[in-house]
């Protein structure tokens, strides 16, 4: 894979270089997919969102200004599409969670972990979309408060309070849904 920077690849994309665009897609698709899947918990919708987001980036390549990192820019586009989709539809909960791959664990432990994971996923989906987004960006994308603020178009202070509410909300939901998890945290 190329070592060219994201802004350099975007500049080439703007001039119609599809190879450069493909490099961008290959570089960021995994993170983009993981975020969309965790937010929507629906493989078909997540795939659609990621495709549309990258195409939007492609169409707007000539207007791209590298004031923020490409990752922040991409996640802003993805999140907007996720929120658009969710605003049109009632939330659904994942029924096809990927299996755990810890082969050393006993079947009982695996089952328990699977149930716990499903409970966390359900709880995430019950959070308000902005709270879910802030948790995903912080915990999985490991974005700084500043980066999250850029993606969500809010202040860093607002990110802080949103994260606090999201964590409290998640904790309450987990305690309510599954007392064993509630006891654990």
């Amino acid at each position: 894979m190329t070592t060219e920077s994201d802004p350099a690849l975007m500049a080439k994309t703007a001039s119609g270089d599809l190879v450069a665009f493909e490099q961008l897609v290959l570089r960021h698709q995994e993170k983009a997919w993981a975020f969309a899947w965790r937010f929507l918990q629906d493989a078909a919708e997540a795939e659609d969102v990621v495709q549309e987001a990258f195409l939007r980036v492609f169409r707007a390549a000539s207007q791209y200004e590298p004031t923020a990192t490409f990752r922040t820019y991409l996640f802003t586009v993805i999140l907007r599409r996720c929120l658009d989709l969710r605003s049109k539809k009632r939330p659904e909960y994942a029924s096809d969670l990927p299996p755990l791959t810890d082969h050393s664990a006993s079947p009982e432990k695996l089952l328990l972990e699977q149930e716990r994971m499903a409970a966390v996923s359900r709880a995430l989906m019950k959070l308000a979309p902005s709270q879910r987004a802030v948790l995903l960006l912080r915990h999985y994308e490991e974005m700084s408060y500043r980066e999250i603020a850029e993606v969500l178009h809010i202040s860093e202070k607002a990110v802080d309070s949103l994260l606090q509410r999201a964590r409290q909300g998640l904790r309450d939901l987990l305690t309510h849904e599954d007392p064993t998890i509630g006891r654990r945290i």
């Binding site: 997919w33 195409l55 492609f58 716990r116 994971m117 966390v120």
Partner: peptide, 28 residues
């Protein structure tokens, strides 16, 4: 709680994802 969040796994990226994106970009 952070550890619990870390346990939520994600299915692998669909094999045709990047190819589909580039194909659509080429068409456009």
């Amino acid at each position: 709680m952070n550890e619990l969040l870390g346990g939520v796994a994600v299915p692998p990226v669909p094999a045709s994802l990047s190819a589909n994106i580039v194909r659509r970009a080429r068409t456009e």
